[in-house]
Simulated scan of single mutants.
Amino acid sequence: MAAQITGSVGLAGSANIGEECAMFEAIHGSAPRRAGQNVANPSGLLQGAVMMLNHIGQTDVAEKVQNAWLKTLEDGVHTYDIYKDGTSHEKVGTKEFAQAVISRLGQSPNILKSVSYSNNSIMHLPAYKRKAPQKKDLVGVDLFVHWTGTDPNELAASVKKIESSDVQLTMITNRGIKVWPDGFKETFCTDHWRCRFKPVAGKKLEKEHIIQLLQDALNHKIDSIKTENLYEFDGVAKYSLGQGQ
């Protein structure tokens, strides 16, 4: 998000630093639609490389590369994603941008703030300590269904047919908003519904109940999409509530 605010997702690098190894890369994906066209902005990968150089202690090299990159941007040499008429001076491709940075090695920007990494130190992370496992309890299941109707009460009447002596329908949401029971008719609904089932009071939900729920949905021609189990850990709910619940 921060990279996009600056002008392009192609501008930022990222670091994944572990106890024994580290990985550095651009924040964006592989962009297959740009493959072989010599148009992609290489800045993200370059920024990842600068972070790597700092991490391994080659701060002088990182500083030289970063300042050359800043000087290139300042001179208005831009790839298509950040090129702007009236501000940019030259629209270049991937290779040409990289060559522009290389040609400016040893230079620093005049307007943009130059960087100095001489006081940087290698990051040393404390050893990871695994937390003690928490007590995990299955307390419900969300059954997601595809339904093209618009009245949540009508859907609830249909879905309640698959209730049993062990599980019951407690809530229906659409786009995260509770629409049953006691929903608002003004709520705009799509064809993707979440039906939340909880165990009947005094009963314990088992995986077998979920399997039976899916079988009953099939028998009643309810178009189930997927399920998501609801858990409590050490008695604390770790699942989302519906808005308005």
Rank of each mutant, 00 (worst) to 15 (best):
A15Y: 15
A15C: 09
A15S: 14
A15G: 14
A15D: 09
N16Y: 11
N16V: 11
N16Q: 10
N16H: 12
N16T: 14
I17N: 03
I17W: 12
I17L: 08
G18T: 02
G18P: 03
G18Q: 03
G18S: 02
G18Y: 01
E19D: 06
E19H: 09
E19W: 02
E20R: 06
E20H: 15
E20Y: 15
C21F: 07
C21D: 07
A22Q: 05
A22W: 06
M23C: 14
F24C: 11
F24T: 15
F24P: 11
F24W: 10
E25I: 06
E25A: 12
A26H: 03
A26Y: 03
A26M: 11
A26R: 10
I27T: 07
I27S: 12
I27Y: 09
I27Q: 12
H28C: 01
H28N: 00
H28A: 00
H28S: 02
G29E: 05
G29F: 04
G29A: 02
G29R: 00
S30K: 04
S30E: 04
S30H: 05
S30V: 09
S30C: 03
S30Q: 02
A31G: 01
A31P: 02
A31F: 01
A31D: 03
P32T: 00
P32M: 00
R33Q: 15
R33P: 02
R33N: 05
R33S: 08
R34C: 14
R34F: 15
R34G: 08
R34A: 08
A35D: 03
A35T: 06
A35R: 03
A35C: 03
G36Q: 04
G36P: 01
G36N: 02
Q37M: 08
Q37H: 09
Q37V: 10
Q37I: 03
Q37S: 12
N38H: 07
N38I: 08
V39K: 07
V39E: 13
A40E: 04
A40D: 05
N41L: 06
P42F: 07
P42Y: 13
S43G: 14
S43E: 13
S43F: 13
G44N: 09
G44C: 07
L46P: 13
L46H: 15
L46D: 14
